[in-house]
Design a protein around this nucleic acid. Structure first.
Length: 558
RNA sequence: AGACCUAUGGUGUAAUCGGUAACACAUCAGUUUUUGGUUCUGACAUUCAAGGUUCGAGUCCUUGUAGGUCUACCA
């Protein structure tokens, strides 16, 4: 009973448990702080999962806060898509969505406080001059000539910046810390800049906007975020994060950095993703090949699969590249439980069952999902004299002794129907098989087989008369290289997988799919998992391949 | 060149805080199967290097080595 193995914690959970144990907090408060200037991708999913799951685990809360301090890049359109994606992933943020822009008055007051304490000054230097003043990582910087302006003058100038008296770029508010500090972020960082631009929420109310370092930590503090989780590259910002909170004397949120998740064959750079779209290499941000949440959703990846994937990938502080196989595994694991099995033939070849009565249709009862209780129910599938099977499931002369699909003289089970015996085939001048002739064992009907015939293989099939044409899109990884952006000598586009999309204009699916709703996921038996595309209609069915089935046979053949 | 961070099987993450390296994916072999899917079983394989402390080191110390991050009026 007490032999229960101790659950291992990641380093963030350890910190939180410590804080809880010491009574520092009764529950954690986390936040997910996207900038509304792009679509969410798998990397964001990781951050979302970490923040929401950790709060859930310890009975805390998670805010959604849009970090909208840069009016030039941010748009309301993204706010909506981000909200939708988070909900789809299965998470609910605390109360309404929050915006850093809601704190602009408070942030302005914080800045004033800093000036009054002699810890900030208005600098008239140009961006170039400021860059020069900063020095570099080995050389200390030098003070700005405006650094020692009297407090009253700073106050006045800052107010006039806000009033719109000065043009963009003419002045900034800087913290007054230490231009020789080894941490570059302490060399009098810029706190506010002038931008006469219309903000997606505050309109033209403001023409000065706080920088990340003077917005993020303060917003965390205002919201009483206890643990502010972010990625490793913010490590060097942390001392400044702490310094500002301390000088302001406000709620001490704590920043904790973790390594962001990289996934093999995927890229998460906003700029590069945009390039793919702009170059027409993918059809938009929700192209099923994109590592965006909208792309994955369209491809048929269940939200639960993404959640378990992020969980299995773990949390630590070292650089990592998670293999794509783990992602596929999580997708299959989820879909195996939830997706109904149906039959579809992608590359058809006609089979005539010569001893089956012409014009007769026999309804076969086929289970929907053997992984579910009661097999997920049953559906009726029509069986007739002429059917399609997969061209790859027939061989004129099989070489491999372990081959147990269709070939002259061989017996094979048609899933949910009869065992058939291959009598022969017809081919055209090029040797392409045009028809396979078979006979069936009339006492081998599925579920009532008294034939005694043993068939090693089971094939999927579709009655030609009832077959419904559909477009099927086969997706593969977008890049042939696991880390396309990590080659100094090569552009990532060189690794673009030309075969990442193969369209089959006319595949044949069983009639039960005729009215399939967009977003429905299936297992096309023996082929893989598929999802009905968002643009699919009963007049033109479209299915996207989410992921193939594991294929140990195909691999062995080499 | 400086400061900071990180090094555990092929990949990712653990190891109850110094007690004899584990879990998952991948790979391979077998089992089950009316999906060459699923299930189940087994195998393979690991502490960056060199010293030191200790009865005992993946854990501590020293020195290296490798990788990453930092010098936007982006976040």
């Amino acid at each position: 009973m007490s032999e229960e193995k101790r659950e291992s914690l990641n380093f963030i959970e350890e910190i939180i448990e410590e804080d809880l144990k010491n009574g520092k907090y009764t529950a954690p408060a986390t936040r997910f702080p996207p900038e509304p200037n792009g679509y969410l991708h798998i990397g964001h999913a990781k951050a979302i999962c970490i923040n929401f799951e950790i709060a859930k685990k310890y009975g805390g809360t998670t805010n959604l806060r849009f970090d909208d301090t840069n009016p030039t890049t941010e748009e309301t359109e993204y706010v909506d898509s981000i909200k939708r994606d988070i909900k789809w992933l299965g998470y609910e943020w605390q109360n309404e969505a929050l915006f850093t822009s809601d704190y602009f008055p408070q942030l302005y007051a914080f800045a004033t406080t800093l000036i009054e304490k002699g810890l900030a000054f208005v600098d008239d230097s140009t961006p170039e001059e400021i860059a020069l003043q900063k020095g570099d990582t080995t050389k200390p910087g030098v003070n700005s000539p405006y650094r020692d302006r009297p407090i009253a003058e700073n106050l006045d100038l800052f107010r006039r910046m806000k009033e719109g008296e000065f043009p963009d770029g003419s002045r900034v508010l800087r913290a007054k810390i230490d231009m020789t500090h080894p941490n570059m972020h302490f060399r009098d960082p810029v706190l506010y800049r002038i931008k006469h631009e219309t903000h997606h929420r505050t309109g033209d109310e403001w023409c000065i906007y706080p920088m990340y370092d003077f917005a993020h930590g303060q917003s965390d503090s205002i919201e009483h975020i206890t643990h502010s989780l972010c990625s490793l590259e913010f490590r060097h910002h942390r001392p400044l994060y702490d310094w500002l909170i301390e000088q302001l004397g406000i709620f001490p949120s704590r920043q904790i950095e973790f390594a962001r998740m990289n996934v093999a064959h995927m890229i998460t750079s906003k700029r590069k993703l945009k390039l793919l779209v702009d170059e027409g290499l993918t059809i938009g941000w929700d192209d099923p090949r994109m590592p965006t949440l909208s792309g994955m959703r369209r491809r048929g990846v269940p939200a639960a699969a993404i959640r378990t994937f992020c969980d299995k990938a773990g949390v630590a502080k070292r650089e990592n590249v998670i293999e794509a196989e783990l992602f596929d595994f999580c997708t299959r694991q989820e879909l195996n439980k939830t997706a109904d099995r149906v039959m579809a033939v992608l590359d058809p070849v006609k089979v005539v069952i010569t001893n089956f009565p012409e014009g007769e249709t026999e309804m076969m009862s086929v289970e929907n999902n053997p992984e579910e209780e009661d097999n997920g129910g049953y559906r009726e599938v029509p069986f007739t004299r002429e059917i399609y099977v997969e061209r790859a499931d027939f061989k004129k002369e099989p070489q491999n002794r372990k081959y147990f699909r269709l070939a002259p003289g061989k017996d094979v089970r048609l899933k949910g129907a009869y065992i058939i015996h291959c009598e022969g085939f017809e081919e055209d001048a090029e040797g392409k098989v045009t028809q396979i002739n078979c006979t069936y064992y009339d006492n081998s009907r599925s579920g009532a087989d008294t034939s005694g015939v043993k068939a090693k293989g089971t094939l999927h099939w579709v009655s030609i008369e009832h077959a419904v044409p559909a477009e099927v899109r086969l997706y593969d990884r977008l890049f042939t290289d696991p880390t396309p952006t990590m080659h100094e000598d090569k552009d990532f586009l060189e690794f673009y997988n030309e075969e990442s999309l193969k369209v089959i204009p006319t595949a044949y699916v069983e009639p039960s799919l005729k009215t399939s709703e967009p977003g429905t996921t299936y297992q096309f038996m023996r082929l893989g998992y598929f999802a009905t595309d968002t643009e699919s209609t009963p007049e033109k069915l479209i299915f996207n391949r989410t992921v193939t089935l594991r294929d140990t046979w195909g691999k062995r053949k080499g």
